[in-house]
Amino acid sequence: MDELSALIVEDSPTMRQLLVFALSRVRGLSVAEADDGLDALKKLAAMAFDIIITDINMPIMDGLKLVKRVRSDERYADIPIVIITTEGGAEDRKRALALGANAYITKPIRAPQVIKTVKELLKI
């Protein structure tokens, strides 16, 4: 299998480490990290990613703005995006999905849930 790559966008080092540990168990998937939405856009411009996993609440550029920016750029139109949030309500889910996110994970984060979602979106 060709190497796939994931970009984790999360301002909390604790959450980032948890997500990196979780996704490092997916064979053939390399993981890069970004501190916020703006950092993520810089990393997207520098290299290709197969999936983006982003928190919603972040400084500088939050997850919803990042989704909007990514979806408005045709170069990234096909990259699946997973939103991570504390909000479990249907309205928030609808908002994220309407902006172009493909999946939605709610906190508390469990590694099997993250792995399952990423594998489904990457079809691996």
């Binding site: 604790t14 480490q17 948890l18 540990f21 979780a22 168990r25 469990r110 590694a111 099997p112």
Partner: peptide
């Protein structure tokens, strides 16, 4: 899987 999840959570929490 459950044990891995448990260890990852405890490791990351302890490490942080």
């Amino acid at each position: 899987e459950e044990e891995n999840d448990r260890l990852v959570n405890l490791f990351v929490a302890g490490h942080q």
